[in-house]
Structures are given as structure tokens and as C-alpha cells.
């Protein structure tokens, strides 16, 4: 039911009033409904991907490559630029500073702990979310609002299989690949900056130091984390854009919700992985 367009004036000092408590409760309930809805949507998507893995492959597989191109290949210049900047700002300055204070031996540990495990996955995920994710919500939300999803269903085409699975797969693969690319560019530019500022270690020595600080599970865990980031972003985008009836006026709000949910979700996943890293 539509709410009354004429809102009553808020009285001063009304914070914590029964009306506001009810509003907060309603928001919490809405949040819970969103969470359970997203959970159900995730299960449906995973089940569809598994059960229909080989079906309609000549239509679905090119769509996965299309998504990888859109979320990954086309973002290479931007991510490369960010890699250079992060390399200068963090890797280069840190390596140079550690050398100056005589703690050069800890450079590798610092690089692995902060740069590889934290900065790179989160940066890649946020870039994909900001650059492609928001546009994808608008695309899907508009298609939903214009009834295109019903048109697909009427043609016997499963919207989850045709629209969601390729997007989620494309986002997951793209975030993993962009993270690796960002790591390489960041380390290279950082080393170049530190070398210019008087770092005595050769590139081989620098990389050996970083590699020495790596744990055997670092790369698999990083790949898993970035894959989960990408999967989460893809699922939230599709859930917000497709899973609920939308009007064109709702598309903007759905986009904002997507960014908020993905941001919080990635931070929570990151926190869970920190706990795993502490056990290593």
C-alpha cells in the first residue's frame, strides 16, 4: 500500500518515540527479509548453475565471456592505474621507510599481510562494484521494470540461467583475475618507486623477501576470498535488480541498496578471513 505522500511534521525531541521505534523495527524486519531473500536467491542460483551446467551452453557460455569482458578486460586500464598508485602510495613508501629504519627484513611480511591479503582483494572488489556493478543493477532493474524478465519467462527461458548465472560467474572470475593483476602491478610500481628512493634490494631480492613471507595457503585463500567477493557482488546485483518487482522509480533506490549491501558484505567476509589468517 502506498504511503501518505504528505508526511506529518516531525516534532522536536521526538527521537526514540514509539513511532520511531516502530520505524526502526520495520527497517530491521525489512533488512531480515532482504537477507533471507538473498539467501534463497543464492541457493536457487547455485542450484540452477549446478543442474543446468551444460544446458544451453552455446547461449550461456558466450554470455559468461561477455561478462568477463565487461567486468574484467575493460577494467584493466583503470585497475592498472590504481595498481600503480597503490604501489607508489603503499608498497614503495613502506619498503623505503622500512629500509630507512633498519627494518627491511619485515618488508615482505608487511606486503603480504596488508597489501596481498587486504588491500588488493578489497580494492578489486570495490572497483568492479563501482564501475560495473551499479550500471548492472540499473540495467537489470530497468529490464525488470519494463517487463522484459516476464518476456523471457514466456519464451521458456529461465531468467536465472540466462541472466543471473553468467553475471555471477563473470563477476567472480573478473574479481579474482583483477586482484592478481592489481597485485603484480602494485608490487612492480612500488618496487620501482622504492628503488628510486634508494632501496638497495634488487628486484629478485625484493620478490624473494615477499615470497618468503607468504604462507602456503595465501594464494588459495586470496583466490577464494576474491572469488567470494565477486560472487557476492554478482548475487546482490541480480537480487536487487531482478528478484523483486520494481518500477522505474525504484531502480535508483535498488542501486543504492546494492552498494551498501555489497560494501558491508565484503567487509564481513574480510573479517571472517582475518580470523582464518590468524590461525595460520
Amino acid at each position: 500500500m502506498a504511503s501518505d505522500p504528505i508526511l506529518p511534521a516531525r516534532e522536536p525531541g521526538a527521537a526514540g518515540s514509539p513511532g520511531e521505534d516502530a520505524g526502526l523495527l520495520q527497517e530491521l524486519l525489512e533488512g531480515w527479509r532482504n537477507l533471507t531473500g538473498l539467501g534463497a536467491f543464492t541457493l536457487i542460483t547455485l542450484a540452477t548453475a549446478r543442474l543446468r551446467f551444460r544446458e544451453n551452453s552455446r547461449v550461456v557460455t558466450p554470455r559468461i565471456f561477455g561478462e568477463i569482458h565487461r567486468c574484467g578486460v575493460r577494467l584493466l586500464p583503470l585497475v592498472g592505474f590504481l595498481g600503480v598508485v597503490l604501489g607508489l602510495v603503499f608498497v614503495g613508501q613502506t619498503a623505503s621507510l622500512m629500509e630507512q629504519i633498519g627494518a627491511g627484513n619485515f618488508t615482505g611480511t608487511l606486503m603480504v599481510t596488508v597489501f596481498l591479503r587486504e588491500m588488493v582483494p578489497m580494492t578489486a572488489a570495490l572497483v568492479v562494484l563501482a564501475r560495473v556493478g551499479t550500471a548492472a543493477v540499473i540495467d537489470l532493474g530497468t529490464a525488470r521494470a519494463l517487463g522484459e524478465v516476464e518476456a523471457l519467462e514466456a519464451l521458456g527461458i529461465d531468467p536465472i540461467h540466462y541472466l543471473v548465472v553468467p553475471r555471477v560467474a563473470g563477476f567472480a572470475i573478473s574479481v579474482v583475475s583483477l586482484s592478481l593483476y592489481l597485485l603484480v602491478v602494485g608490487l612492480a610500481s612500488g618496487y620501482a618507486f622504492a628503488y628510486a628512493r634508494g632501496l638497495k634490494a634488487s628486484p629478485i631480492e625484493f620478490l624473494t623477501q615477499v615470497a618468503g613471507a607468504l604462507h602456503g595457503l595465501d594464494f588459495p585463500l586470496s583466490a577464494l576470498k576474491t572469488g567470494i567477493f565477486g560472487t557476492l557482488i554478482g548475487l546482490v546485483i541480480c537480487y536487487q535488480g531482478l528478484a523483486r518487482p520494481l518500477s522505474l522509480a525504484d531502480v535508483g533506490a535498488a542501486t543504492t541498496r546494492t552498494v551498501a549491501v555489497c560494501g558491508v558484505g565484503c567487509l564481513m567476509i574480510d573479517a571472517a578471513f582475518i580470523a582464518v589468517y590468524l590461525l595460520l
Partner: peptide
């Protein structure tokens, strides 16, 4: 459907027409 038939705006006219055939026959 009524109106413009709810064509998929992300696809061209040709892709719209070919899509159901490609999907159900798993063809290019």
C-alpha cells in the same frame, strides 16, 4: 505482449528474434 512487445533492450532486433531458437536448440 501489448505495446512494444517487451523486446529485450540489451539485444538487437535480430538477437531478440534468434534468442529463443538458440536457447532451446542450444545453437549459435
Amino acid at each position: 505482449f501489448d505495446g512494444n512487445g517487451r523486446l529485450l533492450s540489451a539485444l538487437s532486433v535480430g538477437e531478440n528474434i534468434l534468442l529463443p531458437w538458440c536457447y532451446h536448440r542450444n545453437a549459435g
